[in-house]
Amino acid sequence: MLKRREVTASLNGLREEARIISGLGSSTYDLHSTGDNSRNFYLWGAMGGAAMVGLGVAMAQPNSNIIVLTGDGEMLMGMGSLATIGVQQPTNLSIIVLDNGHFGETGMQASHTNSCVDLAKIAKSSGFNFSTTIKTDHGLKNFLTRFGDLPRPLFAAFKVEREKLVRSLPILDGVELKNRFRKTYDFLPN
């Protein structure tokens, strides 16, 4: 089992110019805990939408690397978007799931991935060109070394511990989050 913030921090260390979209709840706090960045778009709601927001950016900016960082519950709610992404075959989109097998924000109820559901297999059969589940430190290190060269669309589920961590809260202001993210591509607000 891995630690979610270690996975997040090590991915963030490799990001360079990549934009990261985080799913609501713990994934947003995890991403913010690595340090705030205008290239992050934190979702505070819109459960199930992180992967599709990521696809929207990825198709708008095909030369820009886009990473979606989300949890198992959020990804399960948007499971159809794996099919939609598979059809579009974006070569710049990676979906990273921090999978603790539980709905962490709402009282740690067991999720589907705690039972029989395998998100990586669903991604694979949806047409992702690389899909894996990583459970160990060795697997993480191996993944990080190869991350830049792996084919996209990429899906990786990291099996992480069920932890209650101190929340690291980004700003809530959606308009500000939108405008500062767009500014990283030199777009001005209307």
Partner: peptide
């Protein structure tokens, strides 16, 4: 114009928002 087939309409809402974040 690029049509994007969806499995459910809410995907399209999130896609449109992401698209605007990327300037499209």
């Amino acid at each position: 114009l690029q049509p994007i087939v969806l499995t459910t309409e809410e995907e399209g809402v999130a896609f449109a928002c992401g698209n605007w974040l990327g300037g499209k």
